[in-house]
Design a binder for these strands. Structure first.
Lengths: 227, 227
DNA sequence: ACTGGTTTAAGTCAAGGTGACCTTTAGCTA
DNA sequence: TAGCTAAAGGTCACCTTGACTTAAACCAGT
């Protein structure tokens, strides 16, 4: 029984996933999702938080963490029948530990690269990653978790770039602003402003108390093709 | 490692759940969700289908079946640490097996009764049932699974009564019809009609190919209170 | 054959959200 | 000062929604 983590962040306007290089067989030196065996007396949530700490040195309290799915194909692990429960974690672009620690093999990688086929992932981790991506896109549409990607405080533009990175297409800045600012509890104004290199200063916000987006952010029947 | 099944149906305009009476310790003679241990070489999906067959004699191919959540509290089973993966199954009001079989202890029971506290459920099955109910309500709003509750062919009124039973409040028949008939791929007309005891005959439909409701069925910000 | 009851089906309309687009504001830089 | 950029705010046609009304189709009772 193991847990595996699909940890997403947005860096350089691109959705990235945290991968480790496996140090042991099977799939030694192959890229994989962080994870490991569940210990006795531990819940799955606790195991996911522990692996997060051990393998990536990220602070789980700063991340949105939710159970994704259980994977149980008897052939999924050559060592034998090992069921894994995958977790989805969303968080801001956090610093990774420097070399020398357990988690030194952890790397951020664009999701498009990881799924591109150039470097296969260990086990069924590619399928898990695809499921995680699908869930994340759905969550952005129907909940306010997108704010979990933004280090506080953040601007409406920061939030919009999260959506654009995860969904893979541009949004109208004006309509996006109207939508998120009118959604009660999505954004909590701080009163502060951020002065960028160029352009008008932007108001800064914190995450609000709302968690559901009703109605969803997009009402169009389909995402643009080729996303 | 076990699987447990939250099997919902709508009978007598009420959402009901399939419960069994446990024959073994622990929680002997107590009501519980059907389920059992996963066998070697079996996926979780296969185990769920097998338990469905063994314990309820329902045909899994006629049901909508999806993974719900994994429950892992070390204290959830007095026999020791047993992780269970819960499945949600939605189906029409199917006949249950007669006495004499393995599944004779299976009974449909209104969800409101099962969660009412009058008869506690075994293990953490009350919490699992609550999660299943929440998921089912969400699914009805955002997908077309409600049709899985209806034996084919069915009428728009049949479908509306499903929503009313699961959500626990009345819907405007006229607006409901407009919504579902305009949703491409939700309903597939058969050309037939059903002649009820009283009232105008209703057109009969089959399930369409669509699976997502975009936008969701309700756009109101909240369900009526006290649902 | 008519009337009343019941359910399906279709129509009306004001209110409000959406998507596309435009204008103004506020800061920086050359 | 002009020019650039991004934020912030405004306009408007179109569509959906929710509440409501009207018509249609069938049955039962008189």
């Amino acid at each position: 029984m193991t847990v595996d983590l699909v940890i997403f962040t947005v860096r350089q306007d691109e959705l990235q996933v945290l991968l480790i290089e496996r140090g042991n067989e099977p799939y030694r030196r192959c890229a994989a999702l962080p994870g490991g065996f569940v210990r006795d007396g531990e819940t799955l949530d606790e195991a996911a938080l522990r692996e997060l700490r051990e393998e990536t040195a990220l602070d789980g309290r700063k991340l949105h963490l939710e159970q994704l799915h259980a994977y149980s194909d008897p052939e999924r692990d050559p060592r034998g029948r090992i069921i894994t429960v995958a977790y989805l974690a969303l968080g801001p672009d956090l610093p990774l530990p420097v070399a020398g620690t357990d988690a030194a093999a952890a790397r951020w990688m664009p999701v498009s690269t990881a799924l591109g086929g150039g470097m296969p992932l260990a086990f069924d981790h590619a399928a898990i990653l695809r499921d995680g991506l699908e869930r994340a896109r759905w969550q952005l549409e129907h909940t306010t978790v997108a704010a979990a990607f933004c280090p506080e405080p953040f601007t409406v533009g920061d939030l919009r770039r999260i959506y654009e990175a995860v969904w893979g297409f541009k949004l109208d800045p004006s309509n996006f602003r109207r939508k998120v600012t009118r959604t009660e509890g999505f954004l909590e104004p701080t009163g502060e402003r951020r002065f960028p290199e160029v352009g008008r200063p932007a108001a800064l916000y914190r995450r609000g108390v709302a968690s559901l987006l009703i109605p969803p952010l997009l009402r169009s029947s389909e995402f643009p093709v080729g996303r």
